[in-house]
């Protein structure tokens, strides 16, 4: 946003909030709510009691970003953490395609597809297969811009400490794998098979059968297993049990796209650049100005203009380009 905040963009966001009734996250009255205005002001420590109050707030503020805590508090509107009285928290995973190795050189479509596959593996391999979390406790959301958020709400996990959550993030990223200890676990796989030791044994292939596994072989297998099997999550989001995260069904201020739930069985072919455009932005056209040439952007099935100058584009293209800082309204 080159200096000035565009009133047109704020008006479009307000239109979205005026014409929709946003469904709040479960137990909204126990969560801390916060938002950022288009002028950059951050407001936190709000308590919102119900759907009605939330929608009043959003219509009034027309915020750029909206957040709520993964945590449940007795007093979410206290300003100091200890006084909020933490009661528990959902388990949250943040997958951002910006963190993919080589992301700078990838196309937007490729980045989103890769991070979608990682999200899919997180849910099926780690959360459901390894941790035994029931499908019904898992919700996947498009983050609104470049990735996905996975929310787990389950009695088994909601009291987990920050340290316990670190144990889980370490597991998913394949951190702390130790050669000699993994070797020991591999020898136990005959009793029951699972986890990293099973993945590493698969990487070892025939080498695993000879009984003695050479040091260099296991080291190589661990490295390979991590490359193939680990999932690129932003760990602090998971183990910070007080963090506020983007609220589902709100708009991402840097894209104008909806933070929308993706049914687990629809993830494989989900295209956020088609399916997360608000209805309010489908009609009409706007003039925008591109100050300089931009990289290829495809949204809603249309290729956005790339060359510097004035262009007339569909509303959602205008919102996307202006919100992401690529273009300005004249």
């Amino acid at each position: 946003m080159a200096g000035m905040v565009s009133q047109k963009l704020i008006d479009l966001f307000r239109k979205y909030y005026r014409e929709n009734m946003i469904d709040p996250p479960e137990l909204i009255s126990k969560r801390e709510v916060g938002y950022m205005t288009f002028s950059g002001e951050v407001i936190r420590h709000l308590r919102v009691n119900n759907k009605f109050e939330l929608n009043m707030l959003l219509r009034d503020a027309a915020p750029m970003h909206v957040y709520s805590s993964a945590a449940y508090y007795r007093k979410p509107d206290e300003r100091k953490m200890p006084e909020k009285e933490w009661e528990g928290a959902d388990l949250i995973f943040d997958l951002d395609s910006d963190h993919l190795p080589g992301a700078e050189k990838m196309s937007q479509r490729n980045m989103l597809a890769q991070i979608r596959d990682q999200t899919s593996r997180l849910v099926s391999d780690f959360l459901m297969d390894d941790f035994g979390i029931p499908r019904s406790s898992i919700k996947i959301y498009f983050s609104g811009n470049r990735g996905y958020h996975v929310h787990v709400s389950d009695d088994r996990i909601y009291r987990l400490t920050s340290d316990a959550r670190r144990e889980i993030t370490d597991y998913i990223t394949g951190n702390s794998l130790d050669e000699s200890i993994v070797r020991k676990a591999i020898s136990m796989l005959a009793i029951v098979s699972g986890g990293w030791p099973a993945v590493i044994r698969r990487e070892l292939g025939d080498n695993a059968n000879g009984g003695m596994i050479r040091e260099t072989e296991i080291r190589k297998a661990i490295k390979k297993a991590r490359e193939d099997h680990s999932v690129l999550i932003d760990s602090p989001v998971t183990y910070d049990i007080h963090r506020i995260i983007r609220m589902p069904n709100t708009l991402h201020g840097k894209s104008g796209l909806i933070v929308r739930e993706v049914p687990i069985d629809r993830l494989q072919d989900f295209d956020p650049l088609q399916e997360c455009i608000p209805e309010q932005f489908m009609d009409g056209e706007y003039d925008i100005i591109l100050p300089e040439k931009i990289r290829s952007v495809e949204i809603g099935g249309t290729e956005a203009p790339r060359m510097p100058g004035r262009h007339r584009v569909k509303t959602y293209v205008a919102v996307y380009l202006v919100a992401s800082g690529r273009a300005v309204f004249p």
């Binding site: 297969d129 390894d130 941790f131 035994g132 979390i133 088994r156 144990e167 889980i168 370490d170 597991y171 394949g174 951190n175 702390s176 794998l177 130790d178 200890i181 993994v182 676990a185 136990m188 796989l189 009793i191 029951v192 098979s193 699972g194 986890g195 990293w196 030791p197 099973a198």
Partner: peptide
């Protein structure tokens, strides 16, 4: 560390 354990279907062995 959890990473080094046998994990399956919600249990650690």
């Amino acid at each position: 560390r959890l990473s080094n354990q046998i994990v399956r279907a919600g249990y650690v062995y």
